[in-house]
């Protein structure tokens, strides 16, 4: 993917504003490959400028009420696919119950982008440098997909397949994400210059099973079992933090790209591991 010199125009397409979920599913069923969903548009419009996608139909789903909002559903917290990152970062339930998601959404991009960008788009875009998937993986969240043929649910980690690759089928819509609680002992931290994409990020959850996930280091977020085992075995202490930081640096495979070299990323991974563990211990 280049993201090189800017194109000033978009390919031609027909814009449709959907009001109901059923309408979207019908259109997806009929138009297949030719149709693309537009939520915040931050990703899709950029991709269309780069001619990475040229749909003939663009279906705007952000006005569909059922796809928005944050709710407690039994012991899970559900987040509608079209909820914006800004709405997530300002939500009290999220702030209190899922700190990792509060932090990931509140520090993404900048105020103008956060007000448009949705959690659904952030995950479906499937680029390596975004923040929400990293937290969602650490939180063991589920993604809910709907088509005219039925509903399915899978772990966000199984949904993301690679660079620009997901398990989303052509006729499917993401309706929401659910996070099982408790998740109060969770954290998200990243290293980025200003509002640029993260060079590396980390999300840790130690409520229940320990999960340690790194972002922006590989095409999709990666768990580090070696670090998880250290924390499972020894808890969080000065010595386990030192060990975890070293092990992370050694075992997390990091990519080279325009943002940073692999060696630099490994260095950052070590630092993020230590600082995130220290903070979560408090």
């Amino acid at each position: 993917m280049s993201f090189g010199s800017p194109y000033f125009t978009l390919p031609e397409f027909t814009y449709l504003r959907a009001r109901r979920i059923e309408e979207v599913l019908q259109l997806l069923e009929e138009k297949g490959e030719d149709a693309r969903l537009l939520a915040g548009g931050v990703g899709l419009i950029s991709f269309m400028k780069e001619r990475l996608v040229s749909p003939s139909i663009v279906i705007d789903i952000k006005g569909i009420e059922e796809l928005r909002g944050i709710k407690l559903e039994g012991s899970k917290i559900s987040i509608g696919a079209c909820t914006t990152l800004q709405e997530i970062s300002e939500n009290e339930l999220i702030r209190k119950e899922i700190p990792a998601l509060h932090q990931a959404s509140g520090e993404a991009a900048d105020i103008a982008i956060r007000g448009r960008a949705t959690i659904g788009g952030n995950v479906c875009e499937a680029i390596p440098w975004v923040d929400m998937p990293v937290a969602l993986l650490a939180l063991d969240a589920d993604i809910h997909l709907l088509s005219r043929r039925g509903e399915r649910m899978l772990k966000v980690g199984n949904f993301l397949k690679g660079m620009l690759e997901t398990d989303l089928r052509q006729n499917e819509l993401v309706t929401k994400f659910t996070v099982p609680t408790p998740k109060r002992r969770s954290i998200f931290r990243k290293y980025a210059k200003g509002s640029e994409f993260a060079i590396a990020s980390i999300s840790i959850c130690v409520d229940g099973e320990v999960r340690v996930v790194y972002g922006s280091v590989a095409p999709t977020p990666v768990r580090c079992k070696e670090v998880e085992q250290i924390i499972e075995r020894e808890g969080i202490s000065e010595s386990s933090i030192r060990k975890a930081s070293k092990v992370a640096r050694e075992s997390v495979e990091c990519m080279d790209d325009v943002l940073a070299s692999s060696a630099y990323r490994k260095h950052i991974v070590g630092i993020l591991t230590a600082s995130a563990l220290k903070e979560i211990q408090r």
Partner: peptide, 13 residues
């Protein structure tokens, strides 16, 4: 009333 980057918004929106 809220800031957006108008190069990432369609006029029809």
């Amino acid at each position: 009333g809220k800031p957006v980057k108008s190069c990432l918004v369609l006029a029809v929106e």
